[in-house]
Design a protein around this nucleic acid. Structure first.
Length: 249
DNA sequence: AATACCGGCAACCGCGACACG
DNA sequence: TCGTGTCGCGGTTGCCGGTAT
């Protein structure tokens, strides 16, 4: 029993968008804002499905999009974030203002992959190619679901039906199952500091001399504005558990 | 000049997550 | 608690322009 289609395909256009369709979509969203993509096409007079409208707006029509080539700095940020997050393009895009997940995904597949391969780095593991062929530590995002029940039971038993079933040890490959959460601290969290100063997002990623750097003395004033925000991992203000901001586009 | 090939990018598709009744 | 509808994400496809033969 399959899910019903998101739209009546017989009455929807597909393929490239025309200038007229773009204009209709833009003017409708300007007037009514984003949201309720399902009903938007009809309301805007478009013969498109809602998903298609959403994609077109997010990836191409949004006014805050930064068109044009990626800078060397953006390349490095993408590489670093990909090494931490994997193919979580929306999270990566959330840290690159004006870039979309689709754009970054395409850019990764067409440029950065090759760039890393030329450097002798496996784009999947971010390890040297000769090393990648050997033992590999898998950083898994997929295991979270199946692990939930185990995690919920501190004794290490799956405890459905009140039957105690020993949880089998997973295979020795390390499943880090990365989760973004506030770091453990006993009392007041400490900002990420180096040599007595707070690091901005770009510096914490190791991007040198970024024009967007806000942690240099006298510029940006991030230390004061962030003074209450705690540890700044990936630019997250984890003191407030501002994880959602990662997902914002 | 014609054709084949390749790379880049926009758009589509399917699925999981989430919200809501 | 469950079923259904909607949204958002990631993988994949297909078109198009540029380059090589």
């Amino acid at each position: 029993m399959g899910r019903s289609p998101c739209c009546e395909k017989a009455h929807t256009n597909k393929g490239a968008w025309t200038k007229e369709e773009d204009d209709r979509l833009i003017s409708y969203i300007r007037a009514h804002g984003e949201g309720c993509w399902r009903s938007l096409p009809k309301a805007a007079g478009l013969l498109r499905c809602g998903k298609s409208c959403r994609l077109r707006w997010i990836n191409y029509l949004r006014p805050d999009l930064k068109r044009g080539n990626f800078t060397e700095e953006e390349d490095e940020i993408i590489i670093k974030l990909h090494s931490l997050l994997g193919n979580k393009w929306s999270l990566i895009a959330g840290r690159l203002p004006g870039r979309t997940d689709n754009e970054i995904k395409n850019y990764w597949n067409t440029h950065i992959r090759r760039k890393l391969l030329n450097r002798g780095i496996d784009p999947a593991t971010h390890r040297p190619l000769n090393e990648a062929a050997q033992d590999v530590t898998t950083i898994s995002f997929n295991g979270a679901k199946e692990e939930k029940e185990k995690i919920n039971d501190p004794r290490g038993f799956v405890n459905k039906d009140e039957k105690k079933i020993p949880v089998q040890e997973r295979c020795p490959d390390l499943n880090l199952d990365l989760r973004i959460s506030p770091p453990y601290h006993q009392s007041q969290p400490e900002p990420l500091k180096t040599g007595g100063r707070t690091l901005c997002f770009f510096c914490s990623l190791g991007v040198k001399n970024s024009k967007d750097c806000t942690c240099s003395t006298g510029t940006g004033g991030s230390s004061s504005s962030n003074s209450n925000s705690g540890y700044d991992f990936l630019g997250l203000k984890t003191g407030f558990l501002d994880y959602r901001s990662l997902e914002m586009k």
